[in-house]
Protein backbone atom coordinates (compact mmCIF):
# COMPACT_ATOMS: atom_id res chain seq x y z
CA UNK A 1 0.00 0.00 0.00
CA UNK A 2 1.11 3.55 -0.76
CA UNK A 3 2.49 5.48 2.23
CA UNK A 4 -0.08 8.07 3.27
CA UNK A 5 0.61 11.82 2.97
CA UNK A 6 -0.01 12.28 6.68
CA UNK A 7 -0.04 9.61 9.35
CA UNK A 8 -0.72 10.73 12.93
CA UNK A 9 -0.65 8.13 15.72
CA UNK A 10 -1.74 8.67 19.33
CA UNK A 11 -0.72 12.31 19.23
CA UNK A 12 -1.13 14.48 22.33
CA UNK A 13 0.14 17.99 22.88
CA UNK A 14 0.22 20.49 25.72
CA UNK A 15 1.76 23.96 25.98
CA UNK A 16 1.60 24.11 29.77
CA UNK A 17 -0.88 22.09 31.75
CA UNK A 18 -4.12 21.09 30.09
CA UNK A 19 -3.82 19.03 26.93
CA UNK A 20 -4.55 21.05 23.80
CA UNK A 21 -4.78 17.92 21.68
CA UNK A 22 -5.52 14.49 23.07
CA UNK A 23 -4.97 11.10 21.48
CA UNK A 24 -5.26 12.19 17.87
CA UNK A 25 -5.19 9.52 15.17
CA UNK A 26 -5.43 10.58 11.58
CA UNK A 27 -4.47 9.33 8.16
CA UNK A 28 -4.61 11.45 5.02
CA UNK A 29 -4.05 9.70 1.70
CA UNK A 30 -2.24 11.21 -1.23
CA UNK A 31 -4.30 13.58 -3.30
CA UNK A 32 -6.92 14.04 -0.60
CA UNK A 33 -8.33 17.43 0.36
CA UNK A 34 -9.10 17.76 4.05
CA UNK A 35 -10.38 20.69 6.01
CA UNK A 36 -9.70 21.28 9.69
CA UNK A 37 -12.58 23.00 11.46
CA UNK A 38 -13.41 23.67 15.08
CA UNK A 39 -13.95 26.43 17.64
CA UNK A 40 -11.33 29.04 18.50
CA UNK A 41 -8.92 27.61 21.02
CA UNK A 42 -9.86 24.09 20.00
CA UNK A 43 -6.37 23.30 18.71
CA UNK A 44 -6.68 23.82 14.92
CA UNK A 45 -3.62 26.03 14.63
CA UNK A 46 -1.72 23.83 17.08
CA UNK A 47 -2.36 20.80 14.88
CA UNK A 48 -1.17 22.73 11.83
CA UNK A 49 2.00 23.83 13.65
CA UNK A 50 2.66 20.23 14.68
CA UNK A 51 2.32 19.16 11.05
CA UNK A 52 4.79 21.90 10.09
CA UNK A 53 7.23 20.87 12.78
CA UNK A 54 7.02 24.27 14.49
CA UNK A 55 5.93 22.39 17.63
CA UNK A 56 7.04 18.99 18.94
CA UNK A 57 4.39 16.44 20.00
CA UNK A 58 4.17 15.81 23.75
CA UNK A 59 3.29 12.17 22.95
CA UNK A 60 2.75 10.18 19.78
CA UNK A 61 4.15 10.51 16.28
CA UNK A 62 3.56 12.33 13.02
CA UNK A 63 4.84 10.98 9.73
CA UNK A 64 4.67 12.82 6.44
CA UNK A 65 5.11 10.67 3.34
CA UNK A 66 6.49 8.01 5.66
CA UNK A 67 9.24 10.25 7.03
CA UNK A 68 9.69 12.53 10.04
CA UNK A 69 8.28 16.05 9.82
CA UNK A 70 11.75 17.57 9.83
CA UNK A 71 12.97 15.55 6.87
CA UNK A 72 9.70 16.02 4.92
CA UNK A 73 9.73 19.82 5.30
CA UNK A 74 11.04 20.40 1.81
CA UNK A 75 7.94 18.72 0.39
CA UNK A 76 5.47 20.86 2.34
CA UNK A 77 4.11 24.09 0.94
CA UNK A 78 2.70 26.36 3.63
CA UNK A 79 0.46 29.39 3.33
CA UNK A 80 0.11 31.46 6.52
CA UNK A 81 -2.61 33.99 7.19
CA UNK A 82 -1.56 37.05 5.20
CA UNK A 83 -2.88 39.36 7.92
CA UNK A 84 0.11 38.35 10.06
CA UNK A 85 2.64 39.90 7.63
CA UNK A 86 3.94 43.45 7.90
CA UNK A 87 2.02 45.50 5.33
CA UNK A 88 4.74 48.15 5.16
CA UNK A 89 7.63 45.81 4.40
CA UNK A 90 9.29 47.01 1.16
CA UNK A 91 9.23 43.85 -0.91
CA UNK A 92 7.93 43.08 -4.40
CA UNK A 93 5.47 40.33 -5.31
CA UNK A 94 8.24 38.40 -7.06
CA UNK A 95 10.51 38.74 -4.01
CA UNK A 96 7.81 37.25 -1.79
CA UNK A 97 7.38 34.24 -4.09
CA UNK A 98 11.16 33.78 -4.33
CA UNK A 99 11.31 33.26 -0.55
CA UNK A 100 9.74 29.87 -1.26
CA UNK A 101 12.88 28.89 -3.19
CA UNK A 102 15.18 29.34 -0.20
CA UNK A 103 16.47 26.24 1.51
CA UNK A 104 18.60 25.49 4.53
CA UNK A 105 21.64 25.25 2.29
CA UNK A 106 23.68 28.43 2.37
CA UNK A 107 23.10 30.31 -0.87
CA UNK A 108 25.36 33.29 -1.44
CA UNK A 109 24.40 36.28 -3.54
CA UNK A 110 21.32 36.85 -5.70
CA UNK A 111 18.70 34.26 -6.71
CA UNK A 112 19.58 31.93 -9.60
CA UNK A 113 17.90 31.99 -13.00
CA UNK A 114 16.08 28.71 -12.28
CA UNK A 115 14.63 30.20 -9.08
CA UNK A 116 13.33 33.23 -10.93
CA UNK A 117 11.82 31.06 -13.65
CA UNK A 118 10.07 28.89 -11.04
CA UNK A 119 8.74 31.99 -9.26
CA UNK A 120 7.35 33.41 -12.50
CA UNK A 121 5.73 30.05 -13.29
CA UNK A 122 4.13 29.93 -9.82
CA UNK A 123 2.82 33.48 -10.23
CA UNK A 124 1.46 32.48 -13.60
CA UNK A 125 -0.42 29.54 -12.07
CA UNK A 126 -2.26 31.90 -9.72
CA UNK A 127 -2.85 34.43 -12.51
CA UNK A 128 -0.65 37.23 -11.18
CA UNK A 129 2.13 37.38 -13.78
CA UNK A 130 1.44 41.03 -14.53
CA UNK A 131 1.92 42.05 -10.88
CA UNK A 132 5.37 40.47 -10.40
CA UNK A 133 7.21 43.77 -9.93
CA UNK A 134 4.53 45.54 -7.87
CA UNK A 135 5.11 46.18 -4.17
CA UNK A 136 3.42 43.45 -2.11
CA UNK A 137 1.73 46.16 -0.03
CA UNK A 138 -0.12 47.51 -3.08
CA UNK A 139 -2.15 44.34 -3.53
CA UNK A 140 -5.68 43.63 -2.36
CA UNK A 141 -6.32 40.96 0.26
CA UNK A 142 -7.32 38.40 -2.35
CA UNK A 143 -4.24 39.10 -4.48
CA UNK A 144 -1.95 38.85 -1.47
CA UNK A 145 -3.56 35.54 -0.61
CA UNK A 146 -2.78 34.25 -4.11
CA UNK A 147 0.82 35.47 -3.90
CA UNK A 148 1.22 33.44 -0.73
CA UNK A 149 -0.21 30.39 -2.50
CA UNK A 150 2.31 30.91 -5.29
CA UNK A 151 5.04 31.09 -2.64
CA UNK A 152 3.78 27.81 -1.17
CA UNK A 153 3.74 26.21 -4.63
CA UNK A 154 7.10 27.43 -5.88
CA UNK A 155 9.02 24.65 -4.12
CA UNK A 156 6.88 21.98 -5.89
CA UNK A 157 5.30 20.62 -2.71
CA UNK A 158 3.48 17.30 -2.45
CA UNK A 159 1.51 18.49 0.57
CA UNK A 160 -0.06 21.92 0.87
CA UNK A 161 -1.05 23.35 4.26
CA UNK A 162 -3.29 26.43 4.18
CA UNK A 163 -4.13 28.45 7.28
CA UNK A 164 -7.49 30.23 7.03
CA UNK A 165 -7.03 30.93 3.32
CA UNK A 166 -10.47 32.48 2.93
CA UNK A 167 -10.46 34.69 6.02
CA UNK A 168 -11.15 38.34 5.20
CA UNK A 169 -11.92 37.61 1.55
CA UNK A 170 -15.17 38.74 0.01
CA UNK A 171 -17.41 36.17 -1.61
CA UNK A 172 -16.25 36.64 -5.21
CA UNK A 173 -12.58 36.44 -4.30
CA UNK A 174 -13.33 33.35 -2.24
CA UNK A 175 -14.89 31.70 -5.28
CA UNK A 176 -11.75 32.44 -7.31
CA UNK A 177 -9.70 30.94 -4.55
CA UNK A 178 -11.78 27.76 -4.49
CA UNK A 179 -11.47 27.39 -8.25
CA UNK A 180 -7.71 27.62 -7.87
CA UNK A 181 -7.64 25.02 -5.11
CA UNK A 182 -9.84 22.70 -7.20
CA UNK A 183 -7.26 23.04 -9.98
CA UNK A 184 -4.37 22.17 -7.66
CA UNK A 185 -6.12 19.30 -5.98
CA UNK A 186 -5.42 16.90 -8.81
CA UNK A 187 -1.90 16.07 -7.76
CA UNK A 188 -1.29 17.56 -4.32
CA UNK A 189 -2.61 16.59 -0.89
CA UNK A 190 -4.18 19.61 0.76
CA UNK A 191 -5.01 20.41 4.36
CA UNK A 192 -6.63 23.71 5.15
CA UNK A 193 -7.86 25.31 8.35
CA UNK A 194 -11.13 27.11 7.79
CA UNK A 195 -14.15 28.62 9.43
CA UNK A 196 -16.04 28.63 6.20
CA UNK A 197 -18.33 25.63 6.49
CA UNK A 198 -20.26 26.59 3.37
CA UNK A 199 -17.06 25.92 1.46
CA UNK A 200 -16.29 22.80 3.44
CA UNK A 201 -19.40 20.93 2.38
CA UNK A 202 -18.91 21.77 -1.30
CA UNK A 203 -15.26 21.13 -2.08
CA UNK A 204 -13.67 19.15 0.66
CA UNK A 205 -13.51 15.38 0.82
CA UNK A 206 -12.82 15.09 4.51
CA UNK A 207 -13.74 17.31 7.42
CA UNK A 208 -11.57 16.97 10.48
CA UNK A 209 -13.09 18.52 13.56
CA UNK A 210 -10.59 19.59 16.18
CA UNK A 211 -11.75 20.43 19.67
CA UNK A 212 -9.04 18.92 21.88
CA UNK A 213 -10.07 15.57 20.49
CA UNK A 214 -10.28 14.97 16.77
CA UNK A 215 -13.37 13.60 15.09
CA UNK A 216 -13.91 13.09 11.46
CA UNK A 217 -17.06 13.62 9.46
CA UNK A 218 -17.50 12.62 5.86
CA UNK A 219 -18.80 15.80 4.25
CA UNK A 220 -22.24 14.44 3.41
CA UNK A 221 -22.83 13.86 7.12
CA UNK A 222 -22.04 17.44 8.02
CA UNK A 223 -25.51 18.11 9.34
CA UNK A 224 -26.79 20.21 12.17
CA UNK A 225 -25.91 17.49 14.65
CA UNK A 226 -22.35 17.33 13.45
CA UNK A 227 -22.05 21.12 13.62
CA UNK A 228 -23.44 21.05 17.13
CA UNK A 229 -20.68 18.62 17.99
CA UNK A 230 -18.05 20.90 16.55
CA UNK A 231 -19.20 24.24 17.79
CA UNK A 232 -21.63 23.50 20.61
CA UNK A 233 -25.33 24.22 20.44
CA UNK A 234 -25.15 27.97 20.71
CA UNK A 235 -22.75 28.22 17.82
CA UNK A 236 -24.98 26.08 15.65
CA UNK A 237 -27.81 28.56 15.97
CA UNK A 238 -25.57 31.46 14.97
CA UNK A 239 -23.92 29.57 12.15
CA UNK A 240 -27.16 28.47 10.62
CA UNK A 241 -28.68 31.91 10.79
CA UNK A 242 -25.66 33.37 8.99
CA UNK A 243 -24.83 30.63 6.54
CA UNK A 244 -28.09 29.41 5.11
CA UNK A 245 -29.74 32.62 3.84
CA UNK A 246 -26.36 33.81 2.64
CA UNK A 247 -25.86 30.80 0.43
CA UNK A 248 -29.38 31.01 -0.98
CA UNK A 249 -28.75 34.59 -2.00
CA UNK A 250 -25.58 33.65 -3.81
CA UNK A 251 -26.52 30.51 -5.63
CA UNK A 252 -29.21 31.60 -8.14
CA UNK A 253 -26.75 34.06 -9.73
Amino acid sequence: METPAIQIDNLSFRYDEPLVLEDVNLCLHRGEFACIVGPNGGGKTTLLKLLLGLLEPTRGTIQIFGASVASARGQIGYMPQHAALDRQFPVSVLDVVLLGRLTGRLAIGPYRKADRAAAHAALDSVGLTSLAQRPFSDLSGGQRQRVLIARALVCNPRLLLLDEPTANLDRIVQDDFYALVRELKRDISIVMVSHDLGFVSKEVERVICVNREVHEHPTRELTGDALAHIYGTEMRMIRHDQEQPHRHEQEPA
Binding site: G74, V91, V96
Partner: peptide
Protein backbone atom coordinates in the same frame (compact mmCIF):
# COMPACT_ATOMS: atom_id res chain seq x y z
CA UNK B 1 24.68 42.09 3.91
CA UNK B 2 25.30 41.91 0.17
CA UNK B 3 26.26 38.22 0.29
CA UNK B 4 23.40 37.14 2.54
CA UNK B 5 20.74 39.58 1.44
CA UNK B 6 18.12 36.88 0.65
CA UNK B 7 18.13 34.95 3.93
CA UNK B 8 18.22 38.24 5.86
CA UNK B 9 15.15 39.50 3.99
CA UNK B 10 13.41 36.14 4.53
CA UNK B 11 14.02 36.24 8.28
CA UNK B 12 12.91 39.88 8.54
CA UNK B 13 9.78 39.56 6.39
CA UNK B 14 8.37 36.23 7.52
CA UNK B 15 10.31 34.49 10.26
CA UNK B 16 7.97 31.51 10.52
CA UNK B 17 8.06 30.77 6.80
CA UNK B 18 11.85 31.11 6.75
CA UNK B 19 12.05 28.58 9.56
CA UNK B 20 9.90 26.16 7.54
CA UNK B 21 12.21 26.51 4.56
CA UNK B 22 14.96 25.19 6.81
CA UNK B 23 16.65 28.57 7.32
CA UNK B 24 18.42 28.93 10.64
Amino acid sequence: VLLFFNPLVAVCFDEEFARLRGIH
